[in-house]
Each structure stands twice: as structure tokens, then as C-alpha cells.
Design a protein around this nucleic acid. Structure first.
Lengths: 232, 232
DNA sequence: CAGGGCGAGTGGTCCGACCACTTTCGCACA
DNA sequence: TGTGCGAAAGTGGTCGGACCACTCGCCCTG
């Protein structure tokens, strides 16, 4: 025997469950066998089954309902990418620059798409977000959160759930708060507000190019601030 | 008491461990306390601690070494986005169109960056990939795998690990194999080879715009084929 | 027929035991 | 004195069983 590779039981259980889904034994939205039955069928302890389920739940493949059973999710990108948001959550400055660089690739294109596809209601709602954001009495932390909401709303208008999920993974509230606090120190809050208005106007005008350009300028502003602050 | 929200213990354990990392109590590469000690410190059973660890391991935040301990990963995007690759693995056709749309946003920009940053060695290697790919005797499945390698190599030249990780999550070998098989049926294999060559030439010429355009055309070709096949 | 309650079934959590693996340290040997 | 090996301690891996918390459906009651 030169095997040498001992795969953890829980890991194998993950594979087996994934197979059950891939083979169509259980489809999206359907219920998985009981933890106790899976335990018997896979020949592993219930604890290991639970670890496997926990793993797939974290990935957004399964969804657990206490007392009711374990279900396969709809397997939509949004389900699978929710976990993905830890990235921006634990990343550090060097990687934040990388993250922003990727956002600068995505957001302009997404915003351009939004200009073509956004519904009047969506545009209205975005305008409302901006109005509220510019009201007095809001902290920089609020601004960071509002900004996040604004960008997500815009990207959502593009009508691509995968895009929204990826974008969400590249954004984070805490990071945004830091950025807005930093930019406020330099008196750039109004400049950022203007960036937002410019995007909104381009969306209202159904002008993809202008929308994309406005979004690119906005992200670039943040990116430049971060790189200067980090470098010097 | 109108609380009503009973957070699962294991979930809270996840939060606590994430806090430990966010607060710098344990940094990247460092060892976490023992499962048994965490169990005591968090006031939950070892089983629940294990589920929490399993969850964070799945996310790429922790790494477990049997008999040696649990470690925090380097927390590089590549670590955190590995899990992300399940997306392309279990997605179905409708979402594949969304995925391709996102790739069409990313790849041109990434390829343009690569034109500016690629080292001669990298360009050489990419040329070698293309040579091998165009040799005789390769199946369409091989072509799909080769294509994946080509795109990943190009994106890697951009020098942005986050970008590479996101791109990897949006690509999948099995999907590529299907596409190349389908396109081969329509005699388009050579057209795709030409797409690749055009990208490579633009990289060699250090021409970002041409590189981006070539990449966009390539992805668009695949996207169009998929949407036509899906629609009719 | 409608309402409510009870019970079976499911996931949630805990405990304690033992196995598999890694690392370390001290002893015996050269 | 140096070195290599083996035992032991410590860590994660797995198991089994027990009990709690929650959901749902059946059945009894009015």
C-alpha cells in the first residue's frame, strides 16, 4: 500500500452530497434526507454529516431550517456568492487596492448597463437614497453605508444577479466607512456627492457612456486616495 | 422579553473567531487556540467549535493541520476565493450567460493590463500554450482545458491576485469543454485559435487597447454562441 | 367544520471517549 | 560530546448517545 492520502470523512461526505445534487437525486429547493439517515447512508457519524452540511451551507448550496430539515438552495449565483463577502471584510490595505482595481473594471460597465436597463422606479429610489444621504446630521459612517447602498442599487439595475453578487463581495461597509471618514478630513465629501449625482443624471438620461465614465471617475477617486494614503 | 431571535451557537462562534482575527489577536499565518481551549473560552461544546472552524475553513479564512493545530491563512484573495469556484461548478445555463457577461467586463480590462505588465517569460509561456493547443490530436475537451489555462495565464499577467481569483471563480473546465465541443461542431475552432493569437500578438506589441479589444471579441463570440444555442 | 393541542420527527447542542497524526524532548548509543 | 531514535504529550478527527428546541401534521374536541 502506497496510498498515503487519507481523506477526512467529513470532506468525503461533502463530495457525496454534492454528487447527490449534481446527479439530480435532489434538486434545487428540495429537501435532503435526515441528518440521521445521511449518517447511516454515508456510513459516518452524525457529527461528521453536520460538518459537511455546515460546509455546504457556508458555500450557499444548502439551507438549514431548524426542526424542518435541510434544503438545497435555488443555487442562484446570489446564493453562492453571499459567503464571498468575507473577502472585503478581512482584507488588508494591500489587497484593498487590488479589490478597488477590480471594482474599477466592473462598476463602469455595470453602471453603463444600468443606464440602459434601469426602471423608473429604480431610478426614483436611487434619487431618494442620494437625497437622504445629503441631508444634514449624518455621520461619515452613515455616509459610508449610504454610499454602499447607492452603488449596490445602481449595480442591481444592471439586472445581472451574478454581477451584483460579485460586486457585493468586493464591497464592505467597514471599508467604506474608513474611506468616507478619510475623504471627509480632506473636505472631499461634496465632491463625492457630485460624483453620485453625475451617475444618477446619466442614468436618468439613459446615457451608458456618461454613466460608465462617471462611475469610473468615482471609483478612481477613491482608489487614488487610498494609494496615496498608503504610499505616503 | 420580546427578543425572539435565537442565534445558533456555532454561528456565534464563527463571529467570535472572526473578531479575534479582525482585532489582531491572531494574525495571518498564526495559530489559533486549541479546539478544546476555544470550546472553554467561548463556552460552547467542542463540536460547535469544530463546526465554526469548518465554516471558516470553507471560506478560506482558516487552515487545519491534523495533529498540529488550526492556523489563520495568509488571508490573500486567492485563499478566500477558492471556495468561490463552486459557482461555475453547479450553475446552470441561465446563470452562465450572467457569468459570461461579467467575464466580458473583466477580461478586456485584465488583458489590457497584462499588455502593460506581462514579463517576456510570461509571454513566452503563453505562446507555448497556444502552440501546444493547436497541435493535432487534441480533443475538444483538451481544447476547453487549454483555453482555460490560456485565459488564466493572461489574467495572471495583470499582476492582481484578487482579479485572478475572481476570474477563476467565473471560469470552469467543464463549462469550457462544452463550449469548445459546441463551437467545434460549427467549425469555429480555427476562429477561436485566431482570437487567441490576436490577443497574444497584442500582448507582445504591448498594445493595451488592441489586447482589450481582442479579448472582448473572444468572450463575446462565446457569449453569443451560448445565447443563440440557449434561445433556439 | 374550525380550532387547538399533543406528539412524532427534525435539527441544535452537549459530553465523553477513543483514534490518527504531529511535534517535542530526553534517553541511549556511537 | 554529538546524534539519532523512540516514547510521550498534545492536537485535530471521529464516533456514539443523550437531551433540548423547534416544526409540522394528525387527531381530538367543541
Amino acid at each position: 500500500m502506497v496510498e498515503g492520502v487519507r481523506t477526512p470523512v467529513a470532506q468525503r461526505a461533502v463530495e457525496r452530497i454534492k454528487e447527490m445534487i449534481a446527479d439530480g437525486e435532489v434538486g434545487p429547493g428540495q429537501r435532503l434526507p435526515t441528518e440521521r439517515e445521511l449518517s447511516a447512508r454515508l456510513g459516518v457519524s452524525r457529527g461528521s454529516v453536520r460538518e459537511a452540511i455546515r460546509s455546504l451551507t457556508t458555500l450557499g448550496v444548502l439551507s438549514v431550517r431548524h426542526g424542518a430539515g435541510v434544503y438545497v438552495t435555488a443555487l442562484r449565483p446570489a446564493d453562492l456568492l453571499e459567503a464571498f463577502s468575507v473577502l472585503a471584510e478581512v482584507s488588508r490595505d494591500e489587497t484593498l487596492l487590488e479589490v478597488l482595481q477590480v471594482r474599477r473594471m466592473i462598476e463602469p460597465a455595470a453602471t453603463a448597463l444600468a443606464a440602459a436597463r434601469a426602471t423608473p422606479e429604480e431610478l426614483d429610489r436611487i434619487g431618494g437614497l442620494l437625497d437622504r444621504m445629503e441631508e444634514g446630521g449624518r455621520t461619515t459612517a452613515d455616509h459610508g453605508a449610504d454610499d454602499l447602498g447607492f452603488h449596490r442599487a445602481v449595480v442591481a439595475c444592471a439586472g445581472n444577479a451574478t454581477l451584483s453578487a460579485v460586486h457585493a463581495g468586493l464591497s464592505s461597509r467597514t471599508f467604506n466607512e474608513r474611506v468616507w471618514a478619510g475623504l471627509a478630513d480632506e473636505g472631499l465629501t461634496d465632491t463625492l456627492f457630485q460624483d453620485h449625482r453625475r451617475v444618477h443624471e446619466a442614468l436618468l438620461a439613459r446615457d451608458p457612456e456618461a454613466a460608465g465614465a462617471a462611475a469610473a471617475a468615482h471609483v478612481l477617486r477613491v482608489e487614488r486616495w487610498l494609494s496615496l494614503r498608503g504610499g505616503g
